[in-house]
Computed example of a mutant assay.
Amino acid sequence: MVKKSSLMSLFILLIILASCGSNQETVTYYLDNDPLLEKVTITAEDNKIIEHTIKNTINYEAAGYESKEEAQESINVPDMGNLQGIDGIETTATFEDDEFVYGIKYDLAVIDPSEVSDDLQEFLEEEEYWDFEIQVQELEDLGFEKKEE
């Protein structure tokens, strides 16, 4: 009898702890502006954004380039030098066989706003930037479509 009540108490405690846990959600949105495909992935915990990733892809053929080399000569690679070496920010820019891919990932749990430029610091300090629902609505207002991964 004591064993049953102990197991029942443990079961109830586990249910209570599970219901008190954080609510984490990840969404991915796409916007196809041929030849540019934009992908935005946002992860939030309790409606506060903790990770924000942007990946842009330009298909060479769709953009009118006959080769990777022609694309390399014509595409202006975004200058992300001011973001290099900052903890919590990862940048990529690569010319692959069929497409140019560039992106940026912000791990907001790691970024120290004092290490970033004034413009980015000001942006990170805006409350709306951290609000998951506001950011999702802004993406939808811009024409992004939610996709299940």
Rank of each mutant, 00 (worst) to 15 (best):
residue 39 K to E: 14
residue 149 E to D: 13
residue 57 T to R: 08
residue 121 Q to L: 03
residue 72 Q to C: 09
residue 133 E to K: 11
residue 121 Q to D: 08
residue 77 V to E: 11
residue 140 E to Y: 06
residue 62 A to V: 06
residue 35 P to N: 05
residue 124 L to C: 07
residue 144 F to K: 01
residue 113 P to A: 09
residue 131 D to K: 06
residue 113 P to R: 05
residue 78 P to D: 07
residue 59 N to C: 07
residue 132 F to V: 04
residue 49 I to M: 03
residue 15 I to M: 14
residue 124 L to I: 08
residue 38 E to D: 10
residue 108 L to T: 03
residue 82 N to S: 12
residue 133 E to I: 01
residue 21 G to L: 09
residue 3 K to P: 02
residue 55 K to T: 13
residue 100 F to K: 00
residue 131 D to A: 10
residue 93 A to N: 11
residue 54 I to D: 04
residue 89 I to Q: 01
residue 58 I to V: 14
residue 71 A to N: 03
residue 36 L to C: 06
residue 147 K to F: 10
residue 95 F to W: 08
residue 114 S to W: 02
residue 69 E to L: 08
residue 11 F to G: 06
residue 105 K to F: 10
residue 137 Q to I: 06
residue 87 D to E: 15
residue 147 K to P: 00
residue 51 E to R: 02
residue 7 L to E: 15
residue 54 I to Y: 09
residue 56 N to V: 01
residue 129 Y to W: 11
residue 115 E to T: 12
residue 60 Y to N: 03
residue 100 F to D: 05
residue 96 E to F: 04
residue 90 E to C: 00
residue 62 A to K: 13
residue 144 F to L: 06
residue 28 T to H: 02
residue 19 S to V: 11
residue 43 T to E: 03
residue 97 D to N: 14
residue 2 V to L: 15
residue 1 M to I: 09
residue 149 E to N: 14
residue 42 I to A: 00
residue 14 L to P: 00
residue 31 L to R: 06
residue 79 D to L: 07
residue 24 Q to P: 02
residue 36 L to V: 15
residue 104 I to A: 02
residue 70 E to K: 15
residue 145 E to H: 04
residue 92 T to R: 12
residue 96 E to L: 12
residue 84 Q to A: 13
residue 3 K to N: 13
residue 43 T to R: 04
residue 18 A to T: 06
residue 119 D to H: 03
residue 114 S to R: 04
residue 142 L to E: 15
residue 83 L to C: 07
residue 38 E to V: 02
residue 51 E to D: 05
residue 80 M to R: 05
residue 17 L to F: 13
residue 139 L to V: 02
residue 32 D to E: 13
residue 48 K to C: 01
residue 122 E to P: 00
residue 115 E to M: 14
residue 100 F to V: 03
residue 16 I to A: 15
residue 129 Y to K: 10
residue 61 E to K: 15
residue 2 V to P: 03
residue 71 A to L: 03
residue 23 N to D: 12
residue 136 V to L: 07
residue 98 D to Y: 07
residue 21 G to C: 11
residue 22 S to K: 14
residue 98 D to S: 07
residue 36 L to R: 10
residue 55 K to M: 11
residue 55 K to I: 12
residue 50 I to Q: 06
residue 75 I to M: 09
residue 76 N to P: 00
residue 12 I to S: 10
residue 53 T to A: 14
residue 79 D to S: 10
residue 66 E to C: 03
residue 39 K to H: 02
residue 36 L to D: 08
residue 97 D to Y: 07
residue 89 I to R: 01
residue 13 L to H: 02
residue 86 I to M: 07
residue 42 I to T: 01
residue 142 L to K: 14
